[in-house]
Amino acid sequence: KVMEIKLIKGPKGLGFSIAGGVGNQHIPGDNSIYVTKIIEGGAAHKDGRLQIGDKILAVNSVGLEDVMHEDAVAALKNTYDVVYLKVAKP
């Protein structure tokens, strides 16, 4: 199931950690970017929809399929206060 989640960045950013990407696979044979941690009190935690194990398909208009881990981190960092995440639920 794919959904779009709109998050408003807090003082600590979006409030979640990711793993995965080309050269840094979270699941062997899979280059996808996965949510590995939700920080308590952060934007994602308060919103409640993003969960550990969700796959991040895109940030705003930037696709995160088959990208390097660093590029995924940069895509999440290089955002304004309002961030749209395209997410696939497991």
Rank of each mutant, 00 (worst) to 15 (best):
M68K: 15
K86R: 10
G41Q: 06
N31I: 03
G20R: 03
V59G: 01
G53D: 05
T79E: 14
Y80L: 09
G15K: 02
I5Q: 00
A43R: 06
K86N: 08
A75K: 10
E40C: 10
I5R: 00
D47L: 02
D81M: 11
E4W: 06
D30P: 02
D47M: 03
G48K: 15
G21K: 02
G48L: 03
K89P: 09
I5C: 03
H45G: 10
Y84A: 11
V35H: 00
G63V: 12
G29C: 06
V82M: 15
G29F: 07
L14T: 04
G10P: 13
N31L: 02
D71F: 07
I33Q: 03
V2Y: 15
K9G: 10
P28E: 04
D30S: 10
M68S: 09
V87R: 02
Y84R: 12
K9V: 10
G53S: 05
S17V: 12
I38D: 00
G20S: 03
A75I: 09
S32I: 01
K9R: 10
V73C: 10
L57E: 09
R49Q: 15
K89G: 08
I18R: 01
P28H: 15
A58Q: 13
G13P: 06
G15M: 02
P11W: 06
D47V: 03
E65A: 11
M68Y: 14
H45Y: 14
K46N: 11
I39V: 14
M3A: 05
G48D: 04
S61C: 13
L50T: 02
E70R: 14
S32Y: 09
G23E: 13
I56L: 12
D30L: 03
I39H: 12
D30C: 09
I27V: 15
I8A: 09
S61M: 10
Y80S: 07
L64P: 02
M68V: 14
K1T: 04
Y84I: 15
L64W: 07
I8D: 08
N24Q: 15
L76P: 01
K12D: 07
L14H: 05
F16L: 10
I33W: 04
D66P: 04
K37L: 04
L14P: 06
H45K: 13
I27M: 14
I33S: 02
I18N: 01
K6C: 06
R49M: 14
V87G: 01
M3T: 08
Y80I: 14
A72V: 08
L85G: 00
Y84E: 13
A72H: 01
S17P: 02
K6F: 06
I38Q: 01
V73M: 09
D81T: 11
T79F: 09
V62Q: 13
S32E: 03
V67K: 11
G10M: 06
M3K: 09
E40H: 08
K46V: 10
V59Y: 03
E4H: 06
H69K: 15
K12V: 11
A43T: 15
E70L: 11
V35L: 05
G63T: 12
N31A: 06
S17I: 08
E65Q: 13
K1H: 03
V87H: 02
L7W: 02
R49L: 10
L14E: 03
K86I: 07
P90A: 10
Q51S: 14
K1D: 03
K1V: 04
K46T: 13
L50Y: 00
M68T: 07
A58Y: 10
K46I: 12
I33L: 07
V2E: 09
G13A: 04
G29A: 06
Y84K: 13
K46H: 09
K89I: 06
K55N: 04
E40Q: 09
M68W: 08
G53I: 00
K77P: 02
A58T: 14
V87Y: 06
P28D: 05
K12P: 11
E4Q: 06
